[in-house]
Design a protein around this nucleic acid. Sequence first.
DNA 1: AAAATCCTGTAAAACGTTTTAGAAATAAAA
DNA 2: TTTTATTTCTAAAACGTTTTACAGGATTTT
Lengths: 345, 345
Amino acid sequence: MSDRPIVSPDVTIRDVAEAAGVSISLVSFVLNARRGPSGEYLCSASQKTAERIVETAERLGYHRNKAATSLRTGRSDTIGVIVSDISNTCFGQICRKIEKLANDAGYLTIIASTDDRKENFRQLVDKFLYSGVDGFIVAPCHGVEDSIAKILKRRLPVVLFDRDLPGVEGVGRVLLDNEKAGRCAVRILCSQGRKHIGLVRYETDIPTIIARENGCREEAEKNGISFTSAILARETMRRDIVSVLHNAREEGIDAMIFPSNAITVDGLSAINELGFSIPEDLAVVGFDQEDRSEMFNPWFSFVNQPTKLVAEYSFRMLLGAIKGDGQLETKIINPLYTLGSKIKK
Amino acid sequence: MSDRPIVSPDVTIRDVAEAAGVSISLVSFVLNARRGPSGEYLCSASQKTAERIVETAERLGYHRNKAATSLRTGRSDTIGVIVSDISNTCFGQICRKIEKLANDAGYLTIIASTDDRKENFRQLVDKFLYSGVDGFIVAPCHGVEDSIAKILKRRLPVVLFDRDLPGVEGVGRVLLDNEKAGRCAVRILCSQGRKHIGLVRYETDIPTIIARENGCREEAEKNGISFTSAILARETMRRDIVSVLHNAREEGIDAMIFPSNAITVDGLSAINELGFSIPEDLAVVGFDQEDRSEMFNPWFSFVNQPTKLVAEYSFRMLLGAIKGDGQLETKIINPLYTLGSKIKK
DNA sequence: AAAATCCTGTAAAACGTTTTAGAAATAAAA
DNA sequence: TTTTATTTCTAAAACGTTTTACAGGATTTT
C-alpha cells in the first residue's frame, strides 16, 4: 500500500538556484544572511538579486533540509530537556514553557523522563548527545556527575534546574532557594496560628530536601515554635506516613510540612485515608505540587517553584551559552506560595 | 572562554574502518546488519571480520552520526507528538508513555503543544515536517485537515488520538468511545441514587463533546432520569458557569456532568467558589482529569481516557506504519472511570 | 593610465553516512 | 585445467547543505 515515504524535501537549494539563475552558494549566502537595519541582506549579493532569490525560494516553497544543515554545521537547532517525569505537572509546566520559548527562538525541543533513575539519565544523555542536540536543560538525578562531564567534554552547554549537583563546574544553574522555601512554609503556618509543626521526609541526602528542612527549623526557632521531623525509609514511606500522621496528631502537632512532591502526594493521600479534617485537625503545607486548590480542596497551602520563571531563566541562559553571548551562571530564585483558604466555608 | 563546540563526533566510521583494516562500506554493512538466529551478522562480511569490526567500533566508542544517516536515508528515527497542552496531566501521561515506548524502540520523541490553536498546529506540523520526523501522533485541533493532508502528501504516517477529524482518510485513530463515556458518567450518578442530572458545556461542534452529551442523554432516558444541558459561550464560560450551577441547584438538580477537561476545571472551580458541599449538595462527574482524588477531594468521580492504553495503541500503530508492517486502523477504546467515595467520612 | 580596492558572484570541498555496481579471492562445477 | 558460481569485500556516488578561496568586473585611488 504505502510506497517508500517521500523523504527528500521536494525542493532543494539547487532548484532555487536554477530558478533564480544563480549559484547555490549565493542562495545559501542570501538565505543565511543577517538583515540590516532597513531590511537589507548583509551578504555579498546585491539587494536586487538577494530579493529575487528570497522571492524564488518562497515561491518554490523551499525549506532548508535540517539533516544536511546539521551535518555540515554541527548545529541541530535542537535542545534536549531531561526531567524525572514529564507527567508531573510541575515539570510539565516548565517543559511547556521551555518548548514555547525554544520554538519562538527557532529551536526544537526533545523531552525525556528518567523516572529519577541514574541509568535512564545516562542513557538519555548519550542518546541526545549522539543525536546532536545543541544544549541541555536538565533536572539531574543524584549521582549523574559523570554524564554531565560527558556533555561538557563535547563543549555543549548545560543548565541544571530543580536539583543541584554540588561541585560540578562549568554549568548553569536555576535553583529554588530551598532554605527560603522552608522558611516560607513555616511562616505560612505561623500566620495561621499554628504552634507545633511537624515535617515528614524520607531518608536522603538530596540537598533540596535537606535545605528545605533546615529552612523550616531555622524559621520555627526564630518564631519560638516547636518543630519536629520524622524520617522514614523511602521504600515504605507511603505506608509508614499514615501512622506518623496519626501519632503526630495524638502528640498535639497542629501543622504538617511535606517537603517534596513525592512526600506531598503520599502525605495528602494519607490524610484522606485517615479522614482528617483540614484545616481543623491539621494545617498542611505541601511542596512542588501544581496549584489545584481552586479546583480541589482549597485548604492546603503549597510552596512551589515559579515554573515560568524557571523555564525562562533556564532557556535564556542556555540560549546565551549556545549563541556565545551570555554566561552560564547560578540563578537562585524565590519560592512561590499559594495560601489555602484560612476559613472553611 | 568556550571555543566552538566539538560538534563532529570524535570518532567516525572512517576511523573504525582504518582501525579494523577494512573499507568504510564494510563497516557500514556490518553495523547495519540484521542478526541471524544464532547471532550471526547477516551481511556479506565473514563472521570473523564482522566481529572484529563490531569490536573495534565499540573499543573506539563509535556512534553513528545521526545527521549524516538522516541525510542519506531520509529516516530520522524521530517521531513528532503534538498535543494541545503537555502540562495537562492527561496529555502528560500519554506523552510520557509514548516517549518511553519510542525510546525503547530506538526512536526519539519531539513533543509540542498547540494551545488548541490551528495556527500553532500548522506551524508545528511544518516544523516537524522540515525537521524530518518519521511519523506523527497528534491530538488535532478543530479544522486542521489541511495540515494532516500535508503530512500524508509526504507519505508519512499519522495517528490521531483524543480527537477525531471526521472524513480524513489514510490515518490511524485511537479514540475514546465517547458515547460510552457519557453513558458511563450517567451510570455512576444513577448508582449514587441521583435523579436529576445536569450537564454544562460550551457551544461547539467538537464531536468528542457532542458524543459524550448524546451518551449521557441516552443513558438518562434509558434509566428514566431527568437530563438537562446548559450551553454557554466559550469565552465567558468560566464566569457563566457559576450562575448556571447556582440556578441548577435551585431547580433541584442533584448531579452535574462536566464533559471535557476545560469544563471540568471551570466547573470544579465554580463549585469551590459557590461553597457547595460535595456530594451532599451535588454529585459530580468530571472528564479528562487526572485522578487526584486520593490526594485531594475524594468526592468527585471522573471519566478518563486510559492513558497508557492510548499511548500504547498509538505508538504501536505508528511504528507498524513506519516499518511497513502493520495497518493504520481505527481503534475505539473504553473509558476508564474512578468513583468518588460515596460516603463522606 | 596604472594600481589598488570594492562589489558581486562562483567552483569546489567538506560534513559522515548508505548503497549501487562491481572487483578480487575463493570454492565449486565442468 | 578451465569455467562458473559464490563469498567477501571495495570504490565511488549520492544525500543537501555551508563555507573557503578565489575570479571577474566595476569603481576608486594614486
